[in-house]
């Protein structure tokens, strides 16, 4: 019985991986692909691992550690990838409207010495 439930949970996890794969194919650019890739693979891995944990209760402790590590590290890696993709947004043809980050970068490049966060930086004129 536990075997059937575990297999079913793992199957649902695998379905989320399938959704992530379809998302990777259908989305237009890297940043949007990451939306599908990050979220669906996180829940997919969690369900897949817990399915194994249900089938083999001895592994539950190890499965729990894996889940915690995946939840902590998966978003961090996608954050790094998103940052790199944004730095290369013209080359990958990303369409972003609005793009607050590019606006602030342009403002800093234009010689605005204030921090990126302050809207009304004082010009010394």
């Amino acid at each position: 019985m536990a075997g059937i439930i575990g297999a079913f949970v793992s199957l649902i996890g695998a379905l989320f991986f399938l959704l992530a794969a379809i998302g990777l194919l259908r989305m237009p650019d890297a940043l949007n692909r990451m939306q599908a890739g990050t979220k669906a693979t996180t829940l997919g891995s969690i369900l897949f691992l817990f399915g194994i944990g249900i089938m083999q209760p001895d592994y539950l402790g190890r499965v729990f550690i894996l889940v915690v590590f995946i939840v902590l590290t998966n978003p961090v890696s996608s954050n790094a990838l998103a940052r790199a993709a944004h730095a290369n947004r013209k080359r990958i043809g990303a369409v972003l409207s609005p793009d607050a980050l590019a606006d602030d970068e342009a403002r800093i490049a234009a010689g605005d010495r204030g921090t990126a966060g302050t809207k009304e930086a004082t010009h010394g004129a």
Binding site: L31, A82, R83, H86, A116, G117
Partner: peptide, 15 residues
């Protein structure tokens, strides 16, 4: 990053 439709791209100061 793990909630609907949003990914953190960059953090600067409080933003």
């Amino acid at each position: 990053t793990l909630t609907p439709g949003t990914i953190t791209v960059e953090m600067r100061g409080d933003d």
